Computed example of a mutant assay.
Amino acid sequence: MTPPMRAGVYWAPEVSDPLHVLGSAWLGRDAETGALVEQPPVPGIAEITGDPRGYGLHATLKPPFRLARPWDELCREVQALAAATRVFALPPLSVQNLKGFLALRETAPCPPLYALADSCVEALDGFRQPPTEAELERRRRAKLSERHEANLARWGYPYVFEDFQFHVTLTQRLDDAAREAVLPPLLAHFGAVPAMPRLVRELCVFTQAGPGAPFLIAERFPLKGA
Results as ranks from 00 to 15, higher is better:
Asp163His: 04
Ala83His: 06
Thr60Lys: 04
Gly212His: 00
Gly56Arg: 04
Val160Trp: 07
Pro13Tyr: 01
Pro131Phe: 06
Pro222His: 11
Ala177Asp: 06
Ser94Phe: 06
Gln129Asp: 04
Gly28Met: 04
Ala68Gln: 11
Tyr159Ile: 00
Gln79Leu: 07
Val121Ala: 02
Ala84Asp: 15
Thr49Gly: 08
Ala25Leu: 04
Ala195Ile: 05
Gly225Tyr: 02
Ala188Gln: 11
Leu187Arg: 15
Phe164Gly: 09
Arg6Lys: 15
His189Asn: 04
Ala12Val: 10
Leu104Ile: 07
Leu170Glu: 01
Leu187His: 10
Leu19Lys: 01
Leu152Cys: 10
Leu199Ile: 02
Thr2Met: 13
Asp17His: 01
Arg147His: 15
Leu124Ile: 13
Gly8Gln: 06
Ala178Tyr: 03
Leu183Glu: 12
Ala188Thr: 11
Gly8Ser: 14
Arg201Ser: 11
Phe190Gln: 06
Leu187Trp: 09
Thr132Phe: 03
Ser145Cys: 10
Leu136Arg: 11
Pro194Asn: 07
Leu57Thr: 13
Leu90Ala: 01
Ala226Val: 03
Cys75His: 14
Phe221Asp: 07
Lys99Asp: 14
Val87Ala: 01
Asn151Leu: 00
Gly191Arg: 09
Ala142Ile: 10
Ala25His: 05
Ala89Val: 12
Thr132Trp: 05
Ser94Trp: 05
Ala103Pro: 07
Val205Asp: 02
Pro91Lys: 13
Val42Arg: 05
Ala213Tyr: 08
Thr107Ala: 04
Tyr55Lys: 13
Pro214Asn: 09
Asn151His: 12
Cys110Tyr: 02
Leu124Gly: 11
Glu73Arg: 04
Glu32Trp: 11
Ala108Trp: 06
Ala108Ile: 09
Glu73Lys: 03
Arg138Lys: 13
Ala134Trp: 00
Pro64Asp: 12
Glu14Gln: 04
Lys99Gly: 12
Pro158Tyr: 12
Ala142Tyr: 08
Val78Glu: 05
Ala195Lys: 08
Pro211Asn: 11
Pro91Cys: 03
Arg198Cys: 13
Val182Ser: 01
Arg138Gln: 07
Ala195Gly: 13
Tyr55Glu: 04
Ala178Met: 01
Ala89Gly: 12
Lys62Asn: 01
Pro3Phe: 09
